[in-house]
Design a protein around this nucleic acid. Structure first.
Lengths: 340, 340
DNA sequence: GATGCGGATGCAATCGATTGTGATTTCTTG
DNA sequence: CAAGAAATCACAATCGATTGCATCCGCATC
C-alpha cells in the first residue's frame, strides 16, 4: 500500500535510492534489473526499498542510454481524405488488434495522425529517435515517401498493397481477388450492371475496383459504373444518396469499397424505398464487426484483420531483431449473409 | 551489428553538425531553436546545413534535459470488461477527437490499454517520466486508484462521472439526467414496463440506470428491469438475444446503455420478428455516427463527444500550465429519430 | 588610451540511468 | 600458505541536447 509521503517524491533518482541503501547507483541499477552480479541479499534489500518508496526509474534517461525506447509508432497517413479518419471503424479495429499485440510484447504505442503536407513527414517520424519501429495503417497516396524511407529504415511495416518491385514490407489482402469475388457473386445472382462505390486514390480501393472490372469483363458484361464516395463521415451519406438517386435505374447490384460505405448504402436505399437484396443486392468489404449488426446483415469480402495485425507485429519484431521479413498478402474470403 | 554504411546518417548529433559548421554544439542548438543569441547569418547557415543533411535532434536527449516530453498518455482502463475494448466505437470516436486536439497543439499521443491488475498501474504510468499529462478514457471501477494519484499528480483528466467530493478532474455528461430523458421519452409514448440494458459496474452506466429508475418511480410505474449486457463484442449479441427471448413479453420499451447495445438490440429484435418502434421502442445512448446509419435510425441521448474531447484537452493544458481546471458536466440532449 | 558595453560564441555542467573496467574481499586449491 | 578464482561492488564514462556562465571581439565614450 502506498500511503501519502510527507514529501512529494523524496526518492526520484537512482542516486537517491543508492544513498538510502548505502551503495552506489550502479549497484542499484543492476539490482533493479535483476542482474546476477549483485549479491542476492543486497538485491532483495534494494528492491524492497524501491517498492517501499514507490521508486520508478526515469524512462527518458534509460532510453537515452540504451537507445531502446520500447515504443512503436502507429501512423495513419491521410494523404487524401484530410478529414478525421481516425473514427473509421476499419482503422479502429486494426488499431485495437495492434494495440493488443504490442502491449502483450511489452511495447507502448504512439499514435500519430499525419497529414503529409511536408515532404519529409515520415523521415521526421523515424529519425526522431523516439521509436523502435513504425507501423503504417494504410499507404494513402504516399507510396513514394514510404519507399524512400524503407530503403534505409528497416523496422517499418505497412498495412496495404504489395506492388511489383516494392521495397517496403506490407501486409494486406489480395484486393484484386477480393473485388473479383464480390463481383462474381453478384454476377452469379444475375446482376448485369454493377456499380462500384469508392474513391480510387487509395491503392487498396483502386485494386478492389480493378478486380470488379476484371470479373465484369470476363463475364462479357458492360463496364461497371464507378461512383466516388469519400469516407469523410458527414458528407458520405448525402454523396451516396445523390449517386443513388441519379443512377439507381441504371444499375442492379452494388459493390461497396468498404463495409462503412455499404452500411450507409443500406441506409440510403431504405430511405429511397428500395429493398436489399430484392431490388438491389449490396456487397461490402472488410467484414467488420458491424457487418453482423446491419439490417439486413451484410454480405461482404472478409479481410482477417486480427491475423493481419498479428502478422504486422511479427514482421516488425523480426525486423527490429535484424532478421528480414517479407511482405504478405492474405487471400480474401466471401462471407455470404443477407444483403446479396 | 548494424552494417556500417558510409553515408547511412553521416550527421546524427549536434556535435556532428557543429563540426561541419565550424562552431560549437551549443551554438547549433541555439540556432536550431531560433534563439536570438546567435548571429542571424550563422543561424541561417546552420539551419540550411541541418536541412541539407536531414538532421533531426534526438528527442530522448532533448526530453531528458528539458524534462518535457511533448507526449500525452491516453489510457483506457479495463477494470471489468477485460476483453478488447478498444474497438468500442465510443472510445474510438473520443480517441479520434482527442488525437485531433492534441496533434493540433503539437503533442504526441501515447495509447495504453491497461488491465489494472497491479494496484499501482496508474502510478507506474504517471511516474514513468515519459508523459507530460494523462487522459483517462473512462474510470472503469478504478475510482480509488484514480483519486489516490490525482491527489499528488495534477495533469490528469478523465472522461467520466463527477461524484461528490471527487478530487480528480473529470469531464462528462449528466448521466442521471440522460437516463431520465430516455425513460421520460418512452413513458410519454405510453411505455409502462421499461428494460434497461447494460452492466452496472462502470459508474457512467450505473448513473444512467439510476436516471431511468428515477423517472420510472416519478411516474409511479413498476421498477425497470435491469439486464446485464457486456460490451465484449462476440458475446453481446447472444446475451441480448437470450434476454429478449426470456423477457420480451414482460416489457414494452428498452433503454440501452449505449448506442452499440441499442444497435445490437435492433438487430436481435429484427431476428425475432419484432418491429421497432411499433412493438418495442428502443432508445440508445451516445449518439455516435452509427446512430444515423441504423435501420430504423436510433433515437438516442446525445453526448457531445467533440466538445467533451476539447474540454478534456483544455483542462489538461491548463493543469500542465499550473492553473487549476475544474470538472465539468455537460447536459445530455435527447435526439429523436425513428426507433422510439 | 583606458574603460565600458553589448553581441556572439565557446565551455562545461547537467538531465538520470546504464555498463565496462578495475578494485577489494572472500573463497579455493595445489 | 601462497596464488589464483570468484564474487561483489565502486568509479567513471557515456547517451545527445540544453543552458548558465565565461570569454572574446569590436566599437563607442570619456
Amino acid at each position: 500500500m502506498t500511503d501519502a509521503q510527507p514529501f512529494d517524491r523524496p526518492v526520484r533518482t537512482l542516486a537517491d535510492l543508492a544513498r538510502l541503501a548505502g551503495v552506489s547507483a550502479g549497484t542499484v541499477s543492476r539490482a533493479l534489473a535483476d542482474k546476477s552480479l549483485v549479491n542476492p541479499e543486497t538485491r532483495r534489500r534494494i528492491q524492497a526499498l524501491a517498492a517501499e518508496h514507490g521508486f520508478r526509474p526515469n524512462q527518458m534517461a534509460s532510453r537515452l542510454r540504451t537507445q531502446r525506447t520500447g515504443v512503436i509508432g502507429v501512423v495513419v497517413p491521410l494523404g487524401h481524405e484530410r478529414r478525421q479518419h481516425l473514427s473509421d471503424p476499419f482503422f479502429m479495429t486494426l488499431l485495437g488488434h495492434l494495440a493488443d499485440a504490442l502491449t502483450e510484447n511489452g511495447y507502448d504505442l504512439m499514435l500519430s495522425r499525419v497529414i503529409p503536407d511536408a515532404a519529409d513527414w515520415l523521415e521526421r517520424i523515424v529519425d526522431s529517435g523516439m521509436l523502435d519501429g513504425v507501423l503504417l495503417i494504410g499507404q494513402s497516396d504516399q507510396m513514394e515517401a514510404i519507399e524512400r524511407v524503407a530503403r534505409r529504415y528497416r523496422p517499418l511495416v505497412a498495412w496495404g498493397s504489395v506492388l511489383p518491385g516494392q521495397v517496403h514490407c506490407a501486409i494486406g489482402t489480395e484486393n484484386i481477388a477480393g473485388g473479383k469475388l464480390a463481383a462474381e457473386h453478384l454476377i452469379a445472382r444475375g446482376v448485369r450492371r454493377i456499380a462500384f462505390l469508392g474513391e480510387l486514390r487509395a491503392p487498396e480501393i483502386h485494386a478492389r475496383y480493378a478486380g470488379v472490372r476484371a470479373a465484369v469483363e470476363a463475364a462479357g458484361l458492360p463496364a461497371p459504373l464507378q461512383l466516388d464516395a469519400h469516407l469523410a463521415s458527414d458528407m458520405m451519406e448525402q454523396e451516396i444518396a445523390a449517386h443513388m438517386a441519379r443512377h439507381i435505374d441504371r444499375i442492379d447490384g452494388i459493390v461497396a469499397g468498404s463495409d462503412v460505405l455499404a452500411m450507409t448504402t443500406l441506409r440510403v436505399l431504405a430511405d429511397q424505398g428500395m429493398s436489399v437484396p430484392g431490388d438491389v443486392p449490396v456487397v461490402g468489404y472488410d467484414d467488420l464487426p458491424l457487418a453482423l449488426q446491419t439490417v439486413p446483415r451484410l454480405t461482404t469480402v472478409k479481410q482477417d484483420i486480427a491475423t493481419g495485425a498479428r502478422a504486422m507485429v511479427d514482421a516488425l519484431f523480426a525486423r527490429i531483431g535484424g532478421r528480414d521479413a517479407p511482405s504478405m498478402v492474405m487471400p480474401p474470403e466471401l462471407v455470404i449473409r443477407d444483403s446479396a
